[in-house]
Design a protein around this nucleic acid. Structure first.
Lengths: 205, 205
DNA sequence: GCACCTGTTGGCCCAAGGGCCAACTCGACG
DNA sequence: CGTCGAGTTGGCCCTTGGGCCAACAGGTGC
């Protein structure tokens, strides 16, 4: 469970689905095969670490459209590897521009697929790490009272307690209290750490 | 001169070179046409704002190799737009992975080329802005004495003067002096600004 | 040898940060 | 009506940061 990496395999050709499933399972991947894009999208759970291996040309919903849903809609940016039998250059370029990990042509060389999946796995892990880090920080910020949040922005802007007091129409002592509680809640002890946290959350800009 | 954007056009087909030159000049671009990749690379000046429009397949030195030189070697990462008459999917994917702005197939639609150049221009401008910002900051850091640099790293790490003194085997008073001079030289007045500067320079990590 | 830079330290003083205890107001909630 | 969270303020005291002036040592370069 801990080192699980799921490959969502979507291809309307049962033969391809079967052979790729076997290949990837043998490699240790947890493969979820789908012959229907719709079913895949319904069952797809972005909370699970993994990537999608999509056939480009499928009836109803083609690979690029799925990619669009996976990246635009959720925001989780599930890594996508394309596999195609009859693609063209404009399609591959569009897929890559949209952030695809790779765009492979059938017959797919095992080595190429493995390398693409390896990069997809690294990318997914990194994105999840970053995302969870941000989630933790945002959760802390949410515990701040409105006043504490105001003080936060002024502190990361480098203002003195006295100046903050002036701008918020109160006195320095009050700011000190808010500031202290804010630092405590965010779990930082120095202004340096606070600023770095704010930068990661893109506050202050 | 101010809003100059140069398009380095490299194609071994004189006809293509001529027609694209006319098209782009009419659009207001400063076009520099080359039928020889070697000559282009020799004359290429990365200090000039612009982008490269390369034919993929050329004798001796193909487009991908030129791209490699432009991005790997210099580090300036000149935006590249590919144009090709007989490319294939793997080639286009490789080009896009290597950071190409676009990969267009001949006959190139004017609209596609203009859009690609527009994005190339925006990218080039942004990279130059970022680069010059970093250059200015790095220049300031270079004016620091070794001791001041040490103090810098400790300050952005959130350490107190007293702690820094202990770790550097000196007294607090000395650190205060280095610190003050360091802030002065870097042109920052608050720790918050100092930390942001250090983050942009990827110090402290 | 002298000027200059770098690093060092001291004294003095003031400004700013921050902890602890106590207290008050106001609005929401039960 | 009483409680509670949020915001507020005061006093007290200690720690930190930081500016100004002065001084000294060691090394470099003219």
């Amino acid at each position: 469970m801990t080192d699980m990496f799921t490959v969502y395999l979507v291809d309307d050709d049962p033969g391809v689905l079967k052979s790729l499933s076997r290949l990837l399972r043998a490699k240790g991947y947890d493969v979820k095969p789908y012959s229907s894009p719709q079913v895949f999208l319904e069952e797809h759970d972005e909370a699970i670490p993994g990537c999608a291996v999509l056939d480009v040309s499928m009836p109803d919903l083609d690979g690029l459209e799925i990619q669009d849903v996976l990246t635009t809609a959720s925001g989780s940016h599930r890594p996508v590897v394309f596999v195609t039998g009859k693609g063209d250059i404009p399609t591959s370029v569009r897929a890559m521009k949209a952030g695809a990990v790779d765009f492979l042509t059938k017959p797919v060389k095992d080595q190429d697929l493995f390398e693409a999946l390896s990069r997809a796995e690294a990318m997914d892990a990194e994105l999840r790490r970053l995302r969870s880090e941000l989630d933790v920080m945002r959760a802390k910020v949410r515990t701040l009272t409105p006043r504490e949040r105001e003080v936060l922005t002024h502190v990361v802007a480098g203002r003195l307690n006295k100046q903050i007091a002036g701008e918020l129409g109160t006195v320095e002592k009050t700011i000190k209290v808010h500031r202290s509680r804010m630092m405590e809640k965010l779990g930082v002890r120095t202004v340096a750490d606070l600023v770095r946290m704010a930068e990661k959350l893109k506050l202050s800009r």
